[in-house]
Design a protein around this nucleic acid. Structure first.
Lengths: 407, 407
DNA sequence: AATACTTTTTAATATATTTTATAAAGTAGT
DNA sequence: ACTACTTTATAAAATATATTAAAAAGTATT
């Protein structure tokens, strides 16, 4: 039976369970902090120093951790520090889009073992899609030559309204009374967790990105649409049914444009990649001075948000203005979120984050207008430092959070 | 030294601390659940049955709990159940307004020992106000004849932007580098906690009101202004600086009325007691059919929200319409909150909650327009069952949460 | 009413953990 | 370089806790 499976845990009782949970917590803290000493564990877990050393010895014997040498002294003998053995456990991360699948294998240091493997898929029938995913994963696993027993589990990051607790995706591949995650687990025979893409990216941002170390952070994912992930009280906030963060579809303009969702003037229609392109196309009907003009009129492929952002960075005035307008709309939404949630940091991710200052400046400017000063002063707006890798890192993080957090 | 003081706790180490924390957790669960058996504690605290019984015996010997008789059998021998001794500990709750102070003494069953004591105060100089509060509290304490050693501490519920973690009120009685709570603690010589009034009421709603048992609940306090308290992941959400929930001042109408806060079209200008009165006064300039007309024209005291709500319950059409309008504005705000936070329940408190169906119906109606169906279906809108006592219950709850939650 | 099966309680036993004490390995000041 | 004071590591002793087992007190079924 898999060491990381909830079934294994529930087979334990009394003292066995207590020991297992303590050792799991130690592994959790090593994932978070990298390296810790026996005294650290003693303090964190509130156990005595000899007991802490005993657990460490067991984890070494089991091959999970290793001595990483002496740490810094804080006024006495230097402590031995311990960290996870890179090749002790591996995580499969799957970043699913509607047309492509990206799979990667991570070691215990959260480094990719191989390059990300990209495969085309089609969202048709559930069974065949799961078979496809499994096949692609096996291919990667074979290539890596890693022992199957060392796989901790699979984290999957996909679009849709997802109830990650019960493993149900209400938007895609839905079947009544048959959670998607159960079907996948049956195929993979190891722990599997699914999470909504924006929430998975938020987890990545919390552990490895700009939101690291903050207890209350908002992560805005601004691609073609507009997504919101929230870290509240140090945890990813999912809401009651798991659907929290449907921020793109709150209305800010009752005389606005019709949104895909059927409503009028959603913030997504004003503050998103699609909004930027729409505004650009409208402007380019009359404006011929812009660097975008030739792309718009002569290129076969339609105008994309990246075109406008690149042009802005090259000094194109129209592009700068358009991004500014989008930023102001976004700023209104962010102001509302700040008033309600009083976060410490707001992280901008997705394509529009590539606009850097061109997008943060109008947002910050708008906050002056709509936020209480005390709240505005306590909030920082930053651009995500994570590259396009955020999706695949997010998927691996989904697994880690679920495995390690459920004590 | 006070048993409930953090100083006492930090004086303990190793096993003493572990025992203390376990026993405190037992008391916490008894506060929440009323009565529990030894087996329950064994499961909750993950300790063995004999150990659980040993702790229970210690708590009995120390006078905190007592045997409450046999519980229901679930297929075997009936368990002994234990509960808090009513007269073992007491809590002082102080509900502060800007002009009045309400003090009450609660026993371990959260019942008031005496009637609430009402006193007039003035928010002038910090020192004299604290002296006044102390004097009034001593009066109540003397009357009750309760041993001072049995006081667990003081919970205070007051208006303002409050950082409850550090005990600072930025709006009232603020002094740089001298947290308000420190000054009060020095006077009272026992644990003291302060919390913003809306958040204190939300705590009361979470433990003893409509939000009891829900992990994700929103509490709207609709009096003269509009306040929001949030229970997220089972805990009161305070935000980074403690100012979360400034919901009243997010704009919903850019061509609206000027708000006290200096901005235009805040939701509070459309959805609150003051909004209801303003709309009523505007309408009554032309309308003479309404039951409110005579009050408006002839009564010395100005029109109040309760006048309009009473009239509505008596069938006054204008009043019903006005409340409906306020409800629709509120509904827009609630819709935004639901989209972002996906709560299980939204509780309406404050004067406007007295309008009952007249206010919930337009809110629910508006949700159809602005919410994703899946989110709307998963959210219930209810009226708070707690009466005007919610403020004073909230203040006592502030103390309990802070004492019992900081393990 | 008798039987088989539960759960609770608790005494005795076995095991685990903490505490204490000591050695080892540092820092900081003189 | 020496002394005084840290912190870390670990063996031995003392203590705490869990497990086991058996008795007590129920329920459910026949």
């Amino acid at each position: 039976m898999n060491y990381w499976d909830t079934e294994y845990m529930s087979s334990l009782s009394g003292l066995e369970l207590k020991t297992f949970l303590n050792k799991k917590r130690m592994i959790k803290y090593l994932y978070r902090q990298g390296m810790l000493s026996s005294a650290d564990f003693s303090n964190i877990l509130k156990i005595s120093a000899p007991k802490s050393n005993a657990y460490i010895q067991e984890l070494i014997d089991e091959g999970f951790i290793e001595n990483k040498g002496k740490g810094e002294s804080i006024g006495g003998r230097k402590p031995n520090t311990y960290g996870l053995k890179k090749n002790s456990v591996y995580i499969i991360g799957i970043d699913m889009g509607l047309k492509f699948l990206r799979i990667a294998l991570f070691n215990a240091a959260m480094q990719k073992v191989n390059d990300v493997q990209l495969s085309a898929i089609s969202f048709n029938e559930r069974g065949t899609l799961i078979d496809e995913i499994y096949k692609h994963t096996q291919k990667l696993l074979t290539k890596s030559k890693i022992d199957k027993d060392k796989i901790m589990g699979v984290g999957i990051n996909m679009p849709g309204l997802i109830d990650s607790k019960n493993g149900i995706n209400y938007t895609y591949l839905y079947e009544q009374d048959a959670p998607l995650v159960d079907a996948i687990t049956k195929k993979f025979k190891c722990p599997v967790f699914i999470e909504n893409d924006t929430k998975a990216r938020t987890l990545a941002e919390m552990r490895y990105g700009a939101a690291k170390g903050y207890d209350n952070a908002l992560v805005l994912q601004i691609d073609w649409g507009l997504g919101l992930g929230m870290i509240l009280n140090g945890k990813l906030y999912k809401g009651n049914s798991g659907f929290a963060g449907e921020f793109g579809h709150i209305p800010i303009n009752n005389k606005g444009v019709l949104c895909n969702c059927g409503k009028i003037g959603c913030i997504e229609t004003m503050a998103s990649g699609q909004a930027l392109v729409r505004l650009a196309c409208e402007a380019l009907e009359h404006n011929t001075n812009s660097k975008l003009s030739s792309i718009y009129k002569h290129r076969k492929e339609p105008l994309m948000p990246t075109d406008i952002i690149s042009a802005a960075h090259l000094g194109d005035q129209l592009s700068v203005t358009l991004i500014n307008n989008v930023g102001e709309a976004l700023g209104q939404g962010v102001a509302n979120l700040i008033q309600i949630l009083n976060p410490e940091i707001v992280v901008l991710g997705g394509v529009l984050a590539k606009a850097k200052d061109y997008i943060t400046t109008p947002i910050e400017h708008t906050l002056y207008k709509y936020c209480l000063p005390k709240l505005r002063e306590d909030t920082r707006i930053v651009i995500s430092p994570l590259s396009d890798e955020i999706g695949i890192i997010g998927s691996a993080t989904v697994l880690l959070e679920n495995i390690l957090e459920n004590n």
